[in-house]
Design a protein around this nucleic acid. Sequence first.
DNA 1: GTCTATATTGCGATAGAC
DNA 2: GTCTATCGCAATATAGAC
Lengths: 216, 216
Amino acid sequence: MLFKLDPDTKARPVGGRIRQKNESIILRAAEIEFANSGFKGASMNDIAQRADLPKANIHYYFKNKLGLYIAVLSDIIELWDSTLNAITPEDNPRDVLITYVQRKIEFSAQNPLASRIFAKELISGAPNMKEYFRDDYALWFKGRADIFRAWAAQGKIDPEVSPEHLIFLLWSATQHYADFSTQIEAALGKDQLEEADYQDAASTLLHIILKGCGIK
Amino acid sequence: MLFKLDPDTKARPVGGRIRQKNESIILRAAEIEFANSGFKGASMNDIAQRADLPKANIHYYFKNKLGLYIAVLSDIIELWDSTLNAITPEDNPRDVLITYVQRKIEFSAQNPLASRIFAKELISGAPNMKEYFRDDYALWFKGRADIFRAWAAQGKIDPEVSPEHLIFLLWSATQHYADFSTQIEAALGKDQLEEADYQDAASTLLHIILKGCGIK
DNA sequence: GTCTATATTGCGATAGAC
DNA sequence: GTCTATCGCAATATAGAC
């Protein structure tokens, strides 16, 4: 697992079917509230109302507000990891980039709440994920950058392209469709983005990045 | 002005030198707190402490917390507008893109707080900027997209590139260096980004986008 | 214009009956 | 395992002396 839970997120160790079901109801409600209002902005009251449970019930399942928040973050990172880390550092940069961009855009379309919670946490300076960014993430990032660097050494990517900044570009451009969909919808004059919009996004992005990096 | 103030942000209409000075002190303090904690998360107490003024003083100058927040947002949009709208829809897409990317990256480096407040507001669905995104922004965006479309019609940009999604790419990739500097610093193993990092970002970005769009 | 003291609300959290 | 009632505190906001 990429992100270790704080040992004290849960009010009680584990549990049976009822616990699992209620915990997942609470987590889903919390995800919505945290995405809309951030950690401090979300209230246990609103989460309880959305979960259709009394407030005390949430405190029975999670130690406190921070514990609930950390649990939501952990779920998100696990999901992220399982979606995007199946990509292997194979030989063909073209295939890797196509797969990555398409999966990430699809992830943005299907899990916008997760992306937004993550983004808000990051913009605030990631106060609750310091260890993750200090340890696991730095390692993960270095591994990826090295693959791009190796490709550049083999002449498969233009030497003008900084591997690090290419990764940032891949991340930001795809993430944008989840985090800033309000802005995108306003720009396109739509109430909600459609499947075709995401496909346009992916194909334009891939055209620019593949050609722009000189990837054959 | 792009963004109309809610008529009731100020506690009192206008004012002299003392008022102007104190208002700007309060606005600067508020910018830091809102960037760190979001609208709900920031407290008038913390803002007052940072401004080195008693809490009641802030309520004397601004009607309430929301009024102060709207005032901060207005300042940000004005700054944005004056920095980026000096760019004219001239004939040469290459020059326009180079100027835009460099200015926006520079803006991210010098005004990270403004970018972050704006980003958090957007991620939350822009509850306090609905009118802006409904009216001014949609118009501004259409104007920009039309310029890119004209260039494409003249063969100056690859036809595979969607003008709309190119603009999103320009926005997101540059914005990223302000909003997600925590992630970038962790990835690069630095405590703070340096001038050289922003230059690397701009040159990699421009290489990929110009070449990727087939702009000569 | 400034600032202390306070009114009032809403929050996270818990006790304790069921 | 569930839920009502409540505690204690921190928040926004204001009254009113200076």
